[in-house]
Design a protein around this nucleic acid. Structure first.
Length: 643
RNA sequence: GCUGGCGUAGCUCAGAGGUAGAGCAGGGUCCUCGUAAGACUCAGGCCGCGGGUUCAAUUCCCGCCGCCAGCUCCA
C-alpha cells in the first residue's frame, strides 16, 4: 500500500504498519508540540494505530492546531482523568468523557460527591499517570467479550453503550496500564505526551443528557501542549469573568434583579435606561428608513387567541398560568406574532400594499426553569426587537436579503464584525413531519440561502434543524473574546398564516396566502445589553456611553465653571455630568476611569480663565487643553455609530 | 426542574451555639490640591424567609426563596 503527504513524498509498505512509523519515515516530527495524530482517508487516526488495507491514500499529519489533533490530545487527557478517579475512588462508575471545544470532561457515578478540594488530588494522580508514560493500547474486541469485560468491572454504562452500538460497528477499547475504556479514539500514543492540563470545575450532568436518567458528576478540565497555551486559556477565562455583565451591570448601575420582585425579571436603572433608549432610538430610526412601521400591542390576550395560534398546544411549557378576567381566561403574551396577525386581518389586504414590514419592541413573558436563569441573558420577561413581514412569493427573496442587510448594518453599528451563520432546513428524509407544502418549503429554503449568498456570508447548512413550521437563519455574533452570542433570527413561518387564515387579494382578484417572515435582529433588549456589556467590557463606544463626558473641577473654586461646561454639552445633545465632590483630581479621575467614561474634562483656574477644558481620554490619557468649541467639534462626529 | 455549592452592611469579605466586624462605597467636617485612592469623623445589619432542636440560633436541623457552576432548552 502507498501513502502520500499532501503535495509531498510518498511511502510504500505493508498494511499493519503504524501511522506513526509511516509519518516518521516521511520525515514528520511528532510530539506534544508537533504532530499528535494523522488523518487518513478523511478519518482521524492515532499515531499508534495500525493501518488497514487500502490503495494509494493521502496521510495528513495533525497538530494541536487541527481539530482532530486537539481532540485526540484532550480525549487522552479525559482518559487520564478517569484513570486517576478510579484509582483514587474505587467503585466509581464511568460515564463518558469526550473532548469539547475548550477542553474535556468525564462523567462519573459515585455515591459520595466530589468536592472542589478533590480536584487538586485528582490532578496530582493524573500527573503520576502522565509521569508513568503508560502507552495507550488500542484493542478491537468481540461484542460479547467486551460486554463481559465491562460487566465484570461493574461498568453498566459502558455495557449500555455497547448494546446501543450498531452490530457492524467494531467495539474498540483503549487500555493504559490497568485502566480500560470503551472508546472509538483516536488517542495519543502514551500518557507521557500530555504536558499542561488543569481540572476546572464540577457539575451535575444527566446520563446521556436525559433528565429522567441518573445524574452523574461531571469534572471539566482543559489541556494544552504547553503551559503557555494553558496559561493563555486561564487568562481568557479570567478576562471573561472580568467582563461578566452581572458584575459590570451593577458597578455601572445599568440594571438589577430583585429577589423581592421575582427571579428573571430585569430592572433597568437610569444609566441602563439611557443606553436602552439610545439603542431603541437608533433601532426605530433605522427601521423607519428601511420601510418598517412600528406597532404597539397589548401584554395579555384571551387564551382563545393562543389556541388559534397554536401556542397553547406546543408552547404551553413556556406559558404562565391564565388569569381570570370576567370569567374568561387571559394569558400573558409569550410572543407578539398573533397580535400582528390580528392587525393584518383588520381589513382586506391588496397585493399592491405588500410587503408590509411591521416592527415592535414587544415585551413578552416566558416561563423558564429556575435553573437556567442567568443575569440578563436568560430572563422571564424581555423585550424583543420583533418584526413580521408579510409579502408575496415573488418578494420573498428580496425581503430576506433586506433583513440580512439590516441585521448586518445594525450589528456592525454596535461594534460586531464577526458572525457565524447557520441555515436550518428540513430533514430531506423526513419531509412529512413539516407543515406547509413542499413547493413553499423549497421556495423558502432557496430564498433564505440565496439571501445569504448575495451577501457573500459564509454559512453552515443544517439539515433537519428547522422547526416543524419554519426554515430559518440564525446569526451568532462573535465578541471581543471570540465567544458566540445568539443574535438575529429569521424564520419563514408556514404555520401562523394558515392558522389565522390571512390572505391578500391578488391581481387576479382572488385571495392568496402571503409569506410571513418572523425576525429579530438584536434578539432581546435584555440579552443584547448583556452582550454589549461583555463585548465592550463596560467601556461603551462614545455614542452609547450613558455618560459621555465627566467634568472634573480641580478645586471647588471651579464648580460654577464646571457646571457651565456640563450644561453647554448637555444643550448640544451630549450626556455630561460634573463630579462635585471635594476630592483631589487624581481621585476624581480614578472614579471616572472606573465608570469608563469616554472623556474626562479637567477644569482648573487656568481653564476657567481661558474658557477651555483639559481633555483626558478614557484610553490614551491627557490630550491637553482645548477650547470648549474645539472639544465640541472633536466629539461632534462621534455621536453616531460608524458602521 | 435536577445535582452540587453559596446567601452576614450598597459592594468585597472576616466571624462565632450567648444576638456582629473590616476595607471600599455613602453622609459630615477639614483640606483647595493639576491627571488612577488626602485626613478625620458619622451612619449603616430582622446575619435571605419560615419552621424545628435548645435555657439560648445569625450559627445546628428541615422547608421555602434567591444566587452560582452545569444538565436541558431557548430570545
Amino acid at each position: 500500500m502507498e501513502l502520500r503527504l499532501p503535495g509531498g513524498p510518498a511511502w510504500a509498505g505493508p498494511p499493519g504498519t503504524r501511522v506513526g512509523e509511516v509519518l516518521q519515515a516521511l520525515g514528520v516530527t511528532m510530539g506534544s508540540d508537533a504532530v499528535l495524530a494523522g488523518e487518513v482517508g478523511g478519518l482521524t487516526v492515532g499515531l499508534g494505530e495500525a493501518l488497514g488495507e487500502g490503495g494509494e491514500r493521502e496521510i495528513r499529519p495533525l497538530t494541536f492546531a487541527d481539530e482532530g489533533g486537539r481532540d485526540a490530545y484532550r480525549h487522552t487527557a479525559s482518559h487520564v482523568l478517569a484513570h486517576a478517579v478510579v484509582r483514587l475512588f474505587p467503585g466509581t462508575i464511568l460515564g463518558i468523557g469526550p473532548a469539547i471545544s475548550d477542553g474535556f470532561y468525564y462523567d462519573f457515578l459515585r455515591s459520595e460527591v466530589f468536592t472542589p478540594e478533590d480536584l487538586p488530588r485528582i490532578e496530582a494522580e493524573m500527573k503520576a499517570i502522565v509521569a508513568a508514560d503508560l502507552p495507550l493500547e488500542r484493542m478491537v474486541m468481540g461484542r460479547d467479550e467486551a460486554i463481559r469485560l465491562f460487566e465484570l468491572r461493574g461498568e453498566r454504562f459502558k455495557v449500555e453503550l455497547i448494546r446501543g452500538l450498531e452490530p457492524e460497528v467494531p467495539i474498540i477499547l483503549y487500555r493504559q496500564g490497568d485502566f480500560v475504556d470503551l472508546c472509538a479514539g483516536p488517542h495519543l500514543p502514551s500518557t507521557g505526551w500530555l504536558k499542561a492540563f488543569k481540572l476546572l470545575s464540577l457539575a451535575g450532568a444527566y446520563w446521556r443528557g436525559d433528565e429522567r436518567r441518573e445524574q452523574l458528576q461531571r469534572i471539566y478540565g482543559t489541556a494544552y501542549p504547553d503551559s503557555e497555551g494553558l496559561e493563555r486559556h486561564l487568562v481568557r477565562l479570567e478576562e471573561a469573568r472580568r467582563r461578566d455583565h452581572r458584575v459590570l451591570g451593577r458597578e455601572l448601575e445599568l440594571f438589577s434583579l430583585h429577589e423581592e420582585a421575582g427571579a428573571g425579571l430585569a430592572f433597568w436603572h437610569p444609566r441602563g435606561g439611557r443606553l436602552r433608549q439610545i439603542i431603541e432610538d437608533f433601532w426605530r430610526a433605522e427601521h423607519r428608513r428601511r420601510g418598517y412601521e412600528i406597532l404597539f400591542t397589548p401584554h395579555i390576550a384571551r387564551a382563545d387567541l393562543w389556541a388559534t395560534s397554536g401556542h397553547l398546544g406546543w408552547y404551553k411549557d413556556s406559558l404562565y398560568s391564565p388569569m381570570d378576567i370576567d370569567g374568561v381566561d387571559y394569558l400573558l403574551k409569550p410572543m407578539n406574532c398573533p397580535f400582528h396577525l390580528l392587525i393584518y386581518k383588520s381589513r382586506t389586504r391588496s397585493y399592491r400594499e405588500l410587503p408590509l414590514r411591521w416592527g415592535e419592541l414587544g415585551t413578552v413573558y416566558r416561563y423558564e426553569r429556575s435553573g437556567v436563569l442567568h443575569g440578563l441573558l436568560r430572563v422571564r420577561g424581555f423585550t424583543q426587537d420583533d418584526a413580521h413581514i408579510f409579502c408575496r412569493p415573488d418578494q420573498l427573496e428580496d425581503e430576506l436579503h433586506g433583513i440580512v442587510d439590516l441585521a448586518r448594518f445594525m450589528l456592525r453599528s454596535f461594534g460586531f464584525s464577526e458572525f457565524e451563520v447557520a441555515l436550518s432546513v428540513r430533514d430531506p428524509a423526513n419531509k412529512q413531519k413539516y407543515l406547509g407544502s413542499d413547493e413553499d418549503w423549497d421556495r423558502a429554503e432557496a430564498a433564505l440561502e440565496s439571501a445569504l449568498r448575495r451577501h457573500g456570508l459564509p454559512f453552515r447548512r443544517e439539515e433537519g434543524e428547522a422547526v416543524f413550521y419554519a426554515p430559518k437563519i440564525d446569526i451568532k455574533l462573535i465578541d471581543a473574546l471570540g465567544r458566540g452570542w445568539q443574535g438575529p433570527t429569521i424564520q419563514v413561518d408556514f404555520n401562523l398564516p394558515e392558522r389565522f387564515d390571512v390572505t391578500y387579494t391578488g391581481e387576479d382578484g382572488r385571495p392568496h396566502r402571503p409569506f410571513m417572515i418572523h425576525r429579530t435582529v438584536l434578539g432581546s433588549m435584555e440579552r443584547f445589553l448583556a452582550c454589549l456589556v461583555e463585548h465592550h467590557a463596560g467601556a461603551f463606544p462614545f455614542w452609547l456611553a450613558p455618560v459621555q463626558a465627566k467634568v472634573l473641577p480641580i478645586t471647588t473654586r471651579q464648580l460654577d465653571y464646571a457646571g457651565t461646561v456640563a450644561e453647554r454639552l448637555t444643550r448640544s445633545g451630549f450626556r455630561a455630568e460634573v463630579d462635585t465632590r471635594s476630592e483631589k483630581i487624581g481621585y476624581k479621575i480614578r472614579a471616572a476611569q472606573l465608570e469608563k467614561v469616554p472623556y474626562m474634562l479637567v477644569v482648573g483656574d487656568r481653564e476657567a480663565a481661558a474658557g477651555t477644558v483639559a481633555v483626558r481620554e478614557r484610553q490614551g490619557g491627557d490630550r491637553g487643553a482645548m477650547t470648549l468649541e474645539e472639544f465640541l467639534s472633536l466629539i461632534a462626529t462621534q455621536g453616531t455609530p460608524v458602521a
